[in-house]
Design a protein around this nucleic acid. Sequence first.
DNA 1: TGGATATACGACTATTCCAGTCCTATTTCA
DNA 2: TGAAATAGGACTGGAATAGTCGTATATCCA
Lengths: 135, 135
Amino acid sequence: MFQLSKKVEYALIAIRHMVSGGKGKIYTTKEIADRYQLPYELLAKIMQKLSKQGFITSYQGVNGGYMLVHNPAEMKVADIIHTIEGKPAVTIVQCESSSLEECSIHTTCTIKNPLIKLQSNLNKVLDELTVMEMF
Amino acid sequence: MFQLSKKVEYALIAIRHMVSGGKGKIYTTKEIADRYQLPYELLAKIMQKLSKQGFITSYQGVNGGYMLVHNPAEMKVADIIHTIEGKPAVTIVQCESSSLEECSIHTTCTIKNPLIKLQSNLNKVLDELTVMEMF
DNA sequence: TGGATATACGACTATTCCAGTCCTATTTCA
DNA sequence: TGAAATAGGACTGGAATAGTCGTATATCCA
């Protein structure tokens, strides 16, 4: 139920790798995929997303790769999840996401409002965890 | 990523319904399914699981149904999830579950240990939430 | 005692999501 | 100009989820 997807795992592994190697260094996707035996194409897409979102900067062409932008303490795991998954890390109730109309049982659903508190509690835990803590 | 399954949603709706109606009353699956427009057969299986686990007691035959056993404050949402899903609510890292051998990248995986703490934090949040809080 | 109503439960189907792959384009350097 | 890198869309296979179907069993009561 509450489990990280492979994509997020790979993203965390990659970022952690880049952090541990120093901030000014450029890393290629291939290098990281080889090092941790991750599927190259999948990792490539993950790196693209991280880059688009500004966690890392990309350099194309020969000798290109990715470079870390932020300090570990500035990268929240919640934001990384959001970036990779394309939606907030925690959306506890399925009908929560959007307008009430989209939930077929919204008129009779009794659990939505009470669970909002759970959602915010989970969010708090994820917001407090930065890449810094992963060492 | 962190979202309740339909089954768990239905379980919570059903339990909340039974709580709000009083403890000594018997409710049928059909009654609850109709009230909240939930698929009957699916809800039936959920009720069976809740019954097997002792959250509710079942009465077969005519005039049968289910009756609440515990007080709202005694029912942890985490336990309900575990019952319905058949596994702990939080298993944050996929390779975490069992012996290290089963994780293909365990020798190089750098994120597992740091995330154990996240797991316990999430567990704490879920353990503190009882059905009582859902009102 | 038989029919109606309820739970019990296994098997099956459909759909959605996830992980991974494939292919092509673009950028950059030497 | 060719090699090495990112960029990104399209596709596939498999697993998990949601939902359905069929049958057995228990119980009540007319």
